[in-house]
Design a protein around this nucleic acid. Sequence first.
DNA 1: GTCTATAATCAGATAGAC
DNA 2: GTCTATCTGATTATAGAC
Lengths: 197, 197
Amino acid sequence: MVQIENGRTRILDSAAAVLCKRGLAGAKLSDIARMAGMLAPSIYHHFPSKDHLVEEVMMEGIYRNSRHIVTKVEVLGAEAPPLVRLRAAIQAHINFLLTGDNYSSAVARVFDDLPSEMKGRVLAAYSSFDNYWRDLIVAAQAAGGVNRSLDATVVRKFLIAMLDSSPSWYRPGKLGPAQIAEQAADFVLYGFVGREA
Amino acid sequence: MVQIENGRTRILDSAAAVLCKRGLAGAKLSDIARMAGMLAPSIYHHFPSKDHLVEEVMMEGIYRNSRHIVTKVEVLGAEAPPLVRLRAAIQAHINFLLTGDNYSSAVARVFDDLPSEMKGRVLAAYSSFDNYWRDLIVAAQAAGGVNRSLDATVVRKFLIAMLDSSPSWYRPGKLGPAQIAEQAADFVLYGFVGREA
DNA sequence: GTCTATAATCAGATAGAC
DNA sequence: GTCTATCTGATTATAGAC
């Protein structure tokens, strides 16, 4: 039996979609409501304010993205080579963003614009995800076979910024999400020059 | 004789600073005016609207960034190996962003949020800069010694997103702009694995 | 749970004095 | 060229009917 999504969920879905399309300031409650099949004041029956709604989208986006990536990595097992696990994480991240998870794309799009108090809470929720990436990178460095002169934090920041940019420029075309994901992994691991110099 | 900057220039400088700190919607005319030592309505003596002011910051940012990078690359000469030229461009871009050019950082920060008509004009102005990067990448691919399976457009998008993210997370610390710039170049060219695998 | 008003707020923009 | 005072418009949010 198909469970029809309730009003609250429809609002969250709409908010995620509008946030990643228009940004934080551009996401008007009237747009979110219309996409959810209602009018703006109805939102207040489900959420106390726009900020609360946005924050819930952020938290959900972090949770979904994190769960997706961890699942794809951990299926490989802890004994899998660190670079194989890192590659899986990169591909999972791109695939998730480009295959239409509006929640995770919304986080990538509006995080920088969040009001500072909310940003603090969202960042705290983000930290375990961030640590997961850090661990993947540090494990690879510890295992050897990588460029140890690169700073793990710098690598992580560059890597995530790069991956998170993909929804802003990706358009369905000759390269699909899976191909972009593979290119991302090759680029991150071996660079523009590649394995055979 | 020192030329004191005039009101118009002070406003542009303030706007660039506030835009990269607060984003487009967060950049209030009253904040911009205050930093320029005046009150909000005074801005209208110099600019017809906030949009016109923002657009001028964007155009100036693109011009400055582009001029800086082209200068640093062309000093090497057209005969310099393409990878050397690409490395110089990467380092110049990071150095320029992190050494405090608010105009170029403002472009990186607010471009996605610009109203669509303005975005079109800014994108047109950006295209010659974008083409310059594309040419650097394509020249390197044509010269050989790089991973040809990577799509030039995908590489360019990832590369610029990565570099443009740096102002959002960089804080003066153990690694300075020059070190980050070098790490960026190594990472882009040889990847996380690096030259000696 | 959604609607029709309507209030409250805030930021961009204008008028006109100085 | 900058100010004070004010207007306008857009958007969040509330009140209360259905």
